[in-house]
Design a protein around this nucleic acid. Structure first.
Length: 276
DNA sequence: AGCCAGGAAGAAT
DNA sequence: ATTCTTCATGGC
């Protein structure tokens, strides 16, 4: 992936491995939007805006080094896509999501976001997270940051109910307490199965949310989150409907190995077409 | 109006 | 160790 940094800008050279539509609209993050037809993305305390150019994209942001890591620009997708194209259904999905990339979202923000995502829909997840940041984030003028642990630790069940988190409101304060004095760097020495087990021990985190956290914030690409959509895709394109979602996920990880997460994202990006 | 959404917790079996 | 029930809420 070719890029160069100039001042507060990152220039993406070429459009084959980077497309804001594919990257942002595939459900790995929820704090993004458009102004004047250009995508912007919020992560932690940062903001970036993406402008399309003739032969690439211009990312205007507050911290280019942070966003080089966030967009994982040092990873080339050529091999990944080449390998995955051998599976016909994913080859089809890659055609429709060629510029997709898996982001490197901070652990704590990802965990909170995906606890909220359980049995929920994209629009309401975005709504709840926007309300959270407006209430507890730092006002940066044109946007609000994601709240710090310090502020999140002060929240109670009532707070989350008020911003519309529904029945997840009772898990969140407990999960925040558990996560706040937990250092995710210990995951480095653990297998993916051990990390998953640890994550599931936290309130509000089950198998699917754990898989999302591992994939989107811990670079565990040997995980394949199976939600209601991927269950439909699995039944139609991969196997029987008699399996549980956890069993489907296991089968898919066995098939795709360290490319599982990428495979999942290409399929999820095309979920409406592939599920029915 | 009823059904659904990037599921998990707790109870029952 | 697995299956069943319940859980808020905004959008379509």
């Amino acid at each position: 992936m070719e890029y160069k940094i100039t001042g507060n800008m990152i220039y993406i050279i070429g459009k084959d491995e980077f497309c804001p539509l594919h990257i942002l609209e595939c459900g790995q993050i929820f704090r993004f939007g458009q102004v004047d037809g250009n995508y912007f993305v919020l992560v932690g305390e940062h903001r970036a805006e993406i402008f399309e150019e003739k032969n690439g994209y211009k990312i205007v942001c507050d911290d280019p080094d942070f966003f080089v890591n966030y967009f994982d620009l040092k990873t080339s997708y050529a091999k990944i896509k080449g390998q995955l194209k051998k599976t016909p259904i994913i080859n089809e999905a890659i055609k429709e999501g060629n510029g997709l990339r898996i982001l490197m979202t901070p652990f704590f923000e990802t965990a909170i976001s995906f606890i909220i995502s359980a049995n929920n829909n994209m629009k309401r997840i975005k709504l709840i997270l926007n309300r959270l940041c407006e209430k507890l984030g730092k006002d940066m003028g044109s946007y609000y940051t994601f709240p710090t642990k310090e502020y999140l630790l002060k929240t109670d069940e009532k707070f989350w109910t008020e911003i519309g988190a529904g029945y997840r409101s009772k898990y969140l304060p407990k999960a925040i307490g558990q996560l706040a004095n937990f250092n995710e760097s210990i995951f480095c020495e653990m297998t993916t199965e051990e990390v998953r087990k640890k994550l599931i021990s936290f309130s509000g985190i089950g198998p699917k949310v754990a898989d999302c956290i591992m994939l989107f914030s811990l670079s565990r690409f040997d995980s394949f989150p199976v939600d209601v959509w991927m269950e439909k895709v699995f039944i139609k394109h991969f196997g029987s409907a008699e399996l549980t979602r956890v069993q489907m996920s296991k089968q898919l990880v066995k098939k795709f190995g360290n490319l599982s997460g990428y495979a999942q994202q290409y399929l999820f990006n095309l979920r409406q077409k592939l599920a029915y």
